[in-house]
């Protein structure tokens, strides 16, 4: 069979997901995550008298812990396939990428498995964030 014909058949039979619907789901679930984070931060501020920036840091830590545990129990992938980007873009996606990379290579041992693979997915985030922040801060600091 020629490659072009094969591609046509694949296109015809592969399920097409509704793009607009996915974007709306991502908007709603992402907004929900923002509201949950804000509610948690307000709780910390009212009951534990934390300063604002500290409350937001502990909100981030709470989301990281919850999503790590959900990843370990195997629920996270099912939730992501339903909520789409609403869970990938918040800090939960960062924690999920790191935890799942560590879990996948756990059988290869603590050094060669977990140690060398834990930053497999998140390494790029840290690397490019750090490089971008370094040069931007340097340029802005020198110019201003």
């Amino acid at each position: 069979m020629k490659l072009e014909n094969y591609k046509k058949i694949v296109d015809k039979n592969s399920k097409k997901e509704d793009k607009t619907k996915n974007v709306i789901i991502a908007f709603l679930s992402g907004g929900f995550m923002g509201v949950v984070g804000e509610a948690f931060a307000q709780l910390l501020e009212t009951f534990l008298y934390m300063p604002t920036h500290e409350a937001y840091m502990y909100t981030m830590i709470m989301l990281v812990i919850v999503s790590s545990i959900l990843t370990g129990l195997g629920f996270f992938d099912k939730i992501v396939s339903f909520f789409k980007c609403g869970l990938i873009v918040p800090t939960t996606g960062f924690a999920h990428a790191m935890t799942s990379a560590a879990m996948d290579h756990e059988s290869e041992g603590p050094i060669k498995g977990i140690g060398s693979n834990i930053f497999k997915m998140t390494g790029s985030i840290i690397l490019y964030g750090l490089v971008a922040a370094f040069f931007l801060a340097l340029i802005k600091g020198v110019i201003m």
């Binding site: 992402g30 923002g34 984070g37 873009v89 918040p90 800090t91 960062f94 985030i125 964030g129």
Partner: peptide, 11 residues
């Protein structure tokens, strides 16, 4: 508030 501090852009 948390709308900007929850996404990964905050990092």
């Amino acid at each position: 508030g948390a709308g900007a501090s929850v996404p990964i852009t905050n990092y």
